[in-house]
């Protein structure tokens, strides 16, 4: 079996995995980082979004072996201890979540977006969330949260 070394949330981990192991399985099953979720099997829903080398990707559509040598950040690695990341804080403040299942992927997508878009319009935010499906919120408060979180990150 291949061996992978991936820096996950700042810590290097080395594991033997079957080549067919998806990155999301590696995170959830091998590392017990269950904050990253699986909501579909066609790469549509975005519940599994994590950052690989700083960029948002769908961890259900990436093999763990592809991430060998990379740095992965998951939702668990976003806050600084009890101090929330500004995007997390914005989701709480603006009620940008209900059941919470899509939320980790939503936040990880939003953080990457905010890094690249300092002052987005509502339409740009909605487009940026095209790959993240939420069934609870109607997106209204997620859009507000992303706007506020983006402003806070770039403020």
């Amino acid at each position: 079996m291949p061996t992978v070394t991936i820096t996950v949330n700042g810590k290097a981990v080395t594991r033997e995995v079957e080549a067919r192991t998806l990155l999301v399985q590696f995170l959830r099953e091998h590392l017990s980082l269950t904050g990253t979720h699986v909501g579909c099997d066609t790469s549509q829903c975005g519940a599994c979004v994590v950052h690989v080398d700083g960029q948002a990707i769908k961890s259900c559509t990436t093999l763990a072996v592809q991430a060998d040598g990379s740095a992965v950040t998951t939702i668990e690695g976003l806050a600084d201890g009890q101090t929330l990341h500004p995007m997390q804080e914005a989701f709480r403040e603006h009620h940008g979540l209900q059941c919470g299942f899509c939320t980790p992927g939503m936040i990880m997508t939003a953080v990457d977006f905010a890094k690249n878009n300092k002052n987005p319009t509502e339409a740009e935010i909605r487009q940026a969330l095209e790959g993240n499906i939420c069934r609870c919120t109607g997106y209204h408060n997620i859009v507000k949260a992303v706007a506020a979180g983006t402003a806070a990150m770039n403020g």
């Binding site: 769908k58 990457d112 790959g131 993240n132």
Partner: peptide, 9 residues
Amino acid sequence: IGDPAVRNR
């Protein structure tokens, strides 16, 4: 193309 996460890969 696709969505941002897809475009990143």
